[in-house]
Amino acid sequence: MTLARRLSLLAGAATLACATVGLFSGIAAAAPSGQDRTFLVAAHQSNLTEIAAGKAALQKSSNGVVRRHGQLFIRDHTRLDADLRKVADDLDVDLPSQPSAAQRATLASVSAKSGSAFDAAWLSSQLAGHRQAKAAGQRELAQGSDARVKQLATAAAPVIQMHLDMLEQATGSVGGVAAGSGGQAATRPAARTALGTTLLALGGLLAAGAVVLTRRRRTA
């Protein structure tokens, strides 16, 4: 390879590298809007709250359903927050290290209770918290501008909706399943019984008809 050719290859590579750097710095340079920043902070604090509340449920509740919720919320919000922190990092958005004062106060008042009072307070505070998180996500999708931040809201929406649906179902304990009211799926024995009875009845009717016919013939 000649020196000239090597130089030209090197120049080509350098141009490519510059273009790539330019592309990425272009993305990083686009500053997130005030709404994007507000959402990142609010969603992060909501994640921190649900994680802390989940830990409180595991420490204080003996209700299997509440404990299941706590476990799942810790896991899900830890995952959502890991993705969120990456985006906030890239966009140079500072995140607070703890939930808001109001969120901390609610958590403290729930944790001060015990037994079924704790469970009820925990479930209702979680419903309120998740409703706020859902509203914050919808606001970001409607008014936000950064594509990556909006993507966080899109990805979190089905998870938060699932948590809300779960919380609305979280009462009592279950021991049975009543799972069919139509009869279309019935197994044969029932149908067989019906058919057998019908055929027997039909046989009886036919026999009676034969007797009547025979008697009439005799009298004729």
Partner: peptide
Amino acid sequence: SRAPLAVLLVALAVASGTAGALLL
């Protein structure tokens, strides 16, 4: 003319009754 009909009815009665009883 009714005789074959009566025989037919008896045959059908026996067949139907037997099938029904077997199913049950």
